[in-house]
Amino acid sequence: MPREYVHELKSEIRSISGSYELEYELAVEMDRKTVICLIGTGIVDNSCCGVGGCRFALVPGYVLSHKIYRNDEGLWVSQVESISDEELRGKITNILKKQELVQQVRFL
């Protein structure tokens, strides 16, 4: 189902147990379609149960229409479609793990 995706990078989002950052966007070509990906770093430095962190990727989905308008905050909005196919998810996960050295890949 098509849905809107707001292009937004984030510097430091703090929680009590750590923080994360969304550093850059990335386009991955897959079956002649463009998949949009967000790469970030998370730090868990004050969780009740340990210390950790990771590099991670978020995958909003296929781009249907790229940057169609700007929202009230002046951020670009695209139309995307979520990726639910397990095999395809696996392929994209492998690419992102190899190319961007992320440990976690999540599909939004």
Binding site: K10, I13, S15, I16, S17, G18, S19, Y20, L22, L38, G40, G42, V44, N46, S47, C48, C49, G52, G53, C54, F56, L58, Q104, R106, L108
Partner: peptide, 19 residues
């Protein structure tokens, strides 16, 4: 929702801290 996982499916903001 965009925060990374600490222990699937719990992410950074699902966990309390140390005070």
């Amino acid at each position: 929702m965009k925060a990374p996982m600490v222990a699937w499916p719990l992410g950074l903001f699902d966990c309390c801290g140390v005070s």
